[in-house]
Amino acid sequence: MGVEIERKFLVDHNQWQQMPKPIGTYFRQGYILSEPGKTIRIRVTPDEGFITIKGGTTGLSRLEYEYAIPAVDGEELLNNFAISELKKRRYRIDVGGKEWEVDEFLGDNKGLLVAEIELESEDEKFILPPWVTTEVTGEARYYNSNLSVLPFCKW
């Protein structure tokens, strides 16, 4: 069984702009199913695709199953079956031996910067980078599935 344990934080724009960072990866991400307690997501980068099935969140944890698919299949699934979609650029940054993923949202979500860290357990300790601000774990409006239907520009 796949389990995702994740915490999510907003990112300080000024600090983010000033820091050196790796080249980000462009993501096109859409939802075939998005309802309380379960989502089916398709994600495509320039080189690969993924289908991800997620369950409802309990605490910081939720069931997650993710499988690689050919990018061309991912594009076809997005084009033919997605009910909502968003675009973003993702940066992976190591802090204290843990990988942080920082999403710079594009399109109608432009201006939103969100950092996520996946943990081994809900009580795992980790270092907060100086560019991280408010924790938004569990705040539904920051879920990607919700951003795809009610984007940041409409808040």
Rank of each mutant, 00 (worst) to 15 (best):
Met1Cys: 13
Gly2Leu: 06
Val3Arg: 13
Glu6Cys: 10
Arg7Pro: 08
Lys8Ser: 08
His13Gln: 04
Asn14Tyr: 05
Asn14Asp: 15
Asn14Gly: 03
Gln15Val: 09
Gln15His: 03
Trp16Pro: 00
Gln17Trp: 03
Met19Ile: 14
Lys21Asn: 07
Tyr26Asn: 10
Tyr26Thr: 14
Phe27Thr: 01
Gln29Phe: 11
Tyr31Gln: 09
Leu33Arg: 11
Leu33His: 08
Ser34Phe: 06
Pro36Tyr: 02
Pro36Glu: 06
Lys38Cys: 00
Thr39Asp: 10
Ile40Gly: 02
Arg41Ile: 00
Ile42Leu: 11
Arg43His: 07
Arg43Ile: 04
Val44Lys: 05
Val44His: 04
Thr45Ser: 13
Pro46Trp: 06
Glu48Cys: 07
Gly49Glu: 05
Phe50Gln: 01
Thr52Arg: 00
Ile53Val: 14
Ile53Gln: 04
Ile53Ser: 08
Lys54Pro: 00
Gly55Tyr: 09
Gly55Asn: 06
Gly56Asn: 00
Gly56Cys: 03
Gly56Lys: 01
Gly56Val: 03
Leu60Trp: 07
Ser61Ile: 07
Ser61Tyr: 06
Arg62Asn: 07
Arg62Asp: 01
Glu66Ala: 00
Tyr67Leu: 05
Ala68Asp: 13
Ala68Arg: 15
Ile69Asp: 05
Asp73Lys: 09
Gly74Phe: 04
Glu75Met: 10
Glu75Phe: 10
Glu75Thr: 12
Glu76Met: 12
Leu77Arg: 03
Asn80Lys: 15
Phe81Cys: 12
Phe81Asp: 05
Phe81Leu: 15
Phe81Tyr: 15
Phe81His: 11
Ser84Cys: 05
Glu85Gly: 13
Glu85Val: 13
Lys87Glu: 15
Lys87Thr: 14
Ile93Thr: 00
Asp94Leu: 10
Val95Gly: 01
Gly96Met: 14
Gly97Arg: 11
Lys98Pro: 01
Lys98Gln: 10
Glu99Pro: 00
Trp100Gly: 08
Trp100Asp: 13
Glu101Thr: 08
Glu104Leu: 02
Phe105Arg: 01
Gly107Thr: 10
Gly107His: 04
Asp108Val: 01
Asp108His: 00
Asp108Cys: 02
Asp108Phe: 05
Asn109Val: 01
Lys110Thr: 14
Gly111Cys: 08
Leu112Trp: 02
Leu113Pro: 08
Val114Leu: 10
Ala115Lys: 05
Ala115Ile: 03
Glu116Cys: 13
Ile117Phe: 12
Leu119Phe: 08
Ser121Trp: 05
Ser121Ile: 08
Glu122Asp: 15
Glu122Trp: 05
Asp123Met: 06
Asp123Leu: 08
Asp123Lys: 11
Glu124Ala: 13
Lys125Thr: 15
Phe126Tyr: 12
Ile127Met: 09
Ile127Glu: 11
Pro129Asn: 11
Pro130Cys: 10
Pro130Phe: 07
Pro130Ser: 15
Pro130Gly: 04
Thr134Asp: 06
Thr134Ser: 05
Glu135Arg: 08
Glu135Trp: 03
Val136Arg: 05
Val136His: 02
Val136Leu: 07
Thr137Gln: 12
Gly138Arg: 10
Gly138Phe: 12
Glu139Asp: 11
Ala140Arg: 09
Arg141Thr: 02
Tyr143Phe: 15
Asn144Trp: 13
Ser145Cys: 11
Ser145Pro: 12
Leu147Val: 04
Val149Met: 09
Val149Ile: 12
Leu150Asn: 14
Leu150Glu: 12
Pro151His: 01
Pro151Leu: 01
Pro151Lys: 00
Phe152Thr: 00
Trp155Cys: 10
